[in-house]
């Protein structure tokens, strides 16, 4: 039981990292990144490949952050020229190109066979090890929360918020929004890369088909339900998401007349309904700032 809860919490913390990256990019700056899973995948493969070649996990995770961050650079340049909604679609396409590349470049990624035997975050078995892993993930997440919190309340944070609310005004006071946007994209994607790296070392087996667009939408759902632009929203939203995804596993025990096949459809249907209801009735999310809007 304890180790199972630890497993759920571990996966949740990895999603929280993704949600924090999105909070920085979308919530604080207004950049609509629909390619989160692409940076997540880049981080996962970078760290897994390095670790499989003998690099210590600490270093490989750091490298994952760097590579994922750098790969956001060209996307950032594109973002400068594009409308918000176009940018969303470009990032969606980017994630798909990443997945197809991982599938095709067998010499590097072992293609559809995937990478197995990835060194775990912490060697060891049993409940104690599971809690050590949770502690490590928690430490990383808390550090990320601290980072985002600091960013949000710094002069930098005020500028990116201003970019979100009124880009022209920022230009008018002589600041170049482009530079800030690129920085935000790189940092947010580096966070997604770290999340991917931790995921790879947690699950210890990765294959390109794990990195499909649905994962991105889960993160969006978490952020929108929790409250856009709030660090607490990212955490609470992800908790609700996990409760919902894992909860349906137990729901089957209580509602035996629903077949598992139908349950899979219902799960996605409820995700959809939640997205619609939140955008209509509670655009600020559960933890959102109720004084605004």
């Amino acid at each position: 039981m304890d180790a199972y809860l630890a497993a759920i919490v571990s996966v949740m913390l990895i999603y929280v990292l993704l949600a924090l990256g999105l909070t920085l990019q979308y919530g604080l700056t207004g950049l609509i990144n629909f390619g989160m899973v692409g940076f997540f995948a880049i981080g996962a493969y970078t760290s897994a490949l390095l670790a499989l070649h003998g690099v210590p996990v600490v270093l490989s995770v750091a490298a994952a952050a760097v590579v994922a961050g750098i790969s956001a650079w060209p996307i950032g340049l594109a973002s400068l020229r594009l409308r918000d909604d176009y940018f969303a679609i470009v990032t969606l396409g980017f994630a798909e190109i990443v997945r197809l590349t991982l599938t095709s470049e067998k010499w590097l990624t072992n293609g559809v066979q995937g990478l197995s035997r990835i060194p775990p975050i912490y060697e060891g078995t049993g409940t104690a090890a599971a809690f050590v892993i949770v502690a490590i993930l928690l430490a990383v997440t808390v550090a990320a929360i601290f980072l985002i919190h600091r960013v949000a309340h710094s002069p930098f944070g005020r500028i990116i918020a201003a970019i979100r609310d009124n880009e022209e005004a920022v230009q008018a006071i002589g600041k170049d929004p482009a530079r800030f946007k690129i920085q935000v994209l790189v940092v947010g994607s580096a966070l997604a890369g770290i999340a991917g790296a931790l995921y790879a070392h947690y699950v210890t087996y990765i294959v390109p088909e794990q990195f499909v667009a649905l994962a991105t939408f889960y993160v969006w759902m978490a952020v929108i339900m929790g409250g856009v632009g709030r660090v607490s929203g990212a955490v609470v939203g992800t908790a609700i998401l996990m409760f919902f995804l894992e909860g349906s596993r137990f729901l089957g025990d209580f509602l035996p007349w629903i077949s598992s096949v139908q349950m899979a459809s219902i799960r996605i249907g409820v995700v959809g309904l939640a997205l619609v209801l939140f955008t209509i009735y509670r655009p600020q999310g559960l933890m959102g700032d109720f004084t605004k809007r």
Binding site: I32, D84, D85, A88, F217, W220, I224, V261, Q262, A264, S265, I266, I268, G269, V270, V271, G272, L273, A274, L275, V276, T279, I280, P283
Partner: peptide, 28 residues
């Protein structure tokens, strides 16, 4: 009158609901 993003997100929600209804009704 909302931002394009709100509508985009809502349309993703609608998409999931349509798929769910089709899946429950006619199977996978």
């Amino acid at each position: 009158g909302r931002s394009a993003v709100s509508l985009l997100v809502a349309s993703i929600g609608v998409a999931f609901m349509i798929r769910a209804v089709l899946g429950v009704s006619f199977g996978h």
